[in-house]
Design a binder for these strands. Structure first.
Length: 237
DNA sequence: GAACCGATTTCCT
DNA sequence: GGAAATCGGTTCT
């Protein structure tokens, strides 16, 4: 599991077709920090949001202040707040000018697992910091729940990835292909062609067909760390 | 300046 | 299986 030095993620793998990039990103490592605070996870699930035409994408209405980095060069982060309380991490893909990104939906913790657990708890407590006594009691129960959670499930969801890695709006626009960034990507074991699965994207019920049904969610088949059961799924090329 | 809504997660019925 | 929590982005008046 320990790998002292791993090569930075190759930006060229992200610069063209987003679906090829999604398959390339599976198995790669997400790295936060250095030394004893270092946290590393293996990316096991992503979703592609591609181009102006994609009516499920934040970019479909054109460039705004929020989605601006999606229009920039590949390899950078797009971090946004969703539902007023969770953050989502995306990896920008395609050449500058073409808005596209991969939502990181799930990560399998490899190093710094206790740090991820603490970060999850810290996030949970911050949410109920100014709450009533009842909300505080609820936070206690949630802390107990997180402490009992298996390591593989600590980052099994897009909001949970950000909670476990302490990712928020300040991380928007970082260069993930630069290992000097506070958050970056490192090469991992590539996923064998037959080991990737795909299916429809999650949480985009507002989108019309055909965008609603495109199988643009990709994950490592059989991984216990994916955000949902991968029961009915096509194994991709 | 107000209304509407969401690339989620968790808890309760 | 359904709803609540919570706030900034986007749109419309």
């Amino acid at each position: 599991v320990n790998s002292p030095t791993s090569a930075p993620f190759d930006r060229a793998l992200l610069g063209h077709d987003s679906h090829a990039a999604a398959l390339a990103l599976l198995g790669a490592r997400l790295v936060r920090g250095d030394g004893p605070e270092r946290r590393v996870g293996r990316i096991v699930e992503v979703e592609a949001y591609v181009g102006l035409e994609d009516l499920a994408s934040h970019a479909h209405r054109g460039r705004t202040r929020r989605n601006a980095v999606m229009f920039g060069p590949p390899g950078h982060t797009y971090v946004y707040l969703v539902y007023g309380m969770y953050y989502c991490l995306n990896v920008v893909t395609e050449a500058a000018g073409i808005p596209a990104a991969l939502l990181v939906r799930a990560v399998e913790p490899l190093e710094g697992i206790e740090g991820m657990r603490r970060s999850r708890i810290e996030f949970s407590r911050a949410r109920s910091a100014r709450g009533t006594e009842e909300t505080r009691a609820r936070a206690d129960r949630e802390e107990a729940r997180i402490l009992a959670l298996s390591a593989t499930r600590l980052a099994s969801g897009p909001g949970l990835v950000c909670a476990a890695f302490s990712i928020d709006r300040r991380d928007n626009g970082l260069d993930l292909c630069d290992s000097a960034s506070p958050l970056y990507l490192a090469a991992g074991e590539p996923v064998a062609p037959g080991s990737a699965a795909s299916g429809p994207r999650v949480g985009i019920g507002y989108a019309p067909e055909p965008w609603l049904s495109h199988a643009w969610r990709y994950w490592i088949a059989g991984s216990p760390a994916v955000s949902k059961a991968d029961s009915s799924a096509d194994v991709s090329r």
